[in-house]
Design a protein around this nucleic acid. Sequence first.
DNA 1: TCTATCTTGGAACGACTATTCCAAGATAGA
DNA 2: TCTATCTTGGAATAGTCGTTCCAAGATAGA
Lengths: 199, 199
Amino acid sequence: MPDIKHFDPDSTLDQVVRLFWQRGAEVTGIAEVVQATGLSRSSLYATFGGKAQLQAAALGRYLERQSRPVFDALAADDRGVPAIDAFFERLVAARCRGEHARWGCLVTNTHATASGDLPGIRETLDHHHDALRAAMGAALEKARTKGQLRSGLDLEAAAEALTLQAYAVNLRSRAGAEAGLLLAGVRAVLDGFTTTEER
Amino acid sequence: MPDIKHFDPDSTLDQVVRLFWQRGAEVTGIAEVVQATGLSRSSLYATFGGKAQLQAAALGRYLERQSRPVFDALAADDRGVPAIDAFFERLVAARCRGEHARWGCLVTNTHATASGDLPGIRETLDHHHDALRAAMGAALEKARTKGQLRSGLDLEAAAEALTLQAYAVNLRSRAGAEAGLLLAGVRAVLDGFTTTEER
DNA sequence: TCTATCTTGGAACGACTATTCCAAGATAGA
DNA sequence: TCTATCTTGGAATAGTCGTTCCAAGATAGA
């Protein structure tokens, strides 16, 4: 009996992600969302329920579509240190070149913007952090079995360090940092973890 | 002949810095500034000239009062690696404990929030980055002369890496990251740069 | 075709935003 | 004390914020 939606909520959320990612969620008004998506306030509120929930949904979508595939690729890559190196090469390239250049990372940006008053956001940030650290840890373990790592290296701490580097890359790239400089910094860290120069 | 200001612009700016630092500059309204400082809109606009300029002034003040003293202390510390270690210990402590706990760093936060449309902001961010990297570099050079560093270490890249770690500490601490975890990550990087464990 | 039920466009809401304006108050030299 | 010149409080501006509401439109089963 009822009518059905005249638009695709899924692709709409993707558009919202792009908007929040590039411009910043907090400073992006509903009017901009309306204009970017082309649909009306009614449909927007009926589907997503408000700005805060839309923000949370966009963050979740970003994590699922942008972050997780890359994390999974890292965790599944069996090469060890070269896998980590490839991860950062792709990361820096994505942050400094192409259509998403200077956009940074939505999750990283949210760290600085979300005032903690939004429920569930903090948990999502921690989940993102844990996921990346776990993927880093998995790659490091493979590197260890291959004898690529310095003896006595604390794998947990090393995984955390590399994860932190990724955040910094996201952050500085938004300010227009040079890709070469970012990569040099990352590789200095990675070199400190490895036995010899295998690059 | 004229009247003089009934307040101290200098201490007012300090109050504004605290406000922007803790709550975020973009989401903090003039009304909040008025309430926090106790003075009127007229005085505020006559003295600072508007939100954007107030934001720029606050950022500059933060850099001068908060960042630079710490950078200078790092650059002046002749101990080498222990100087860098002390820098991060103080950084993590300041970000995770005390009155500024979970506030992050105003400069770091600005990376994620400032939309690039504000003139002069980007230059300030780059200046901050260069200053910290230079201080790190100076400390690393002293460490090298003392024989504390691994042979073949690229000092420029190492300085950049440590600077990036500092950004990440600032960012993650705002989300409530554990001090111990952050320090472990930093020390993993530092350990990779040193010859032996001298801690 | 009729109708129950959902969706949609767009007007309207009050609360907020940054900024401007002006009369009233304060100051310091004459 | 007088006065020119600044500062100050606070009202008022136009615009935007997120949100709500309702009549009009669309849909799919009866």
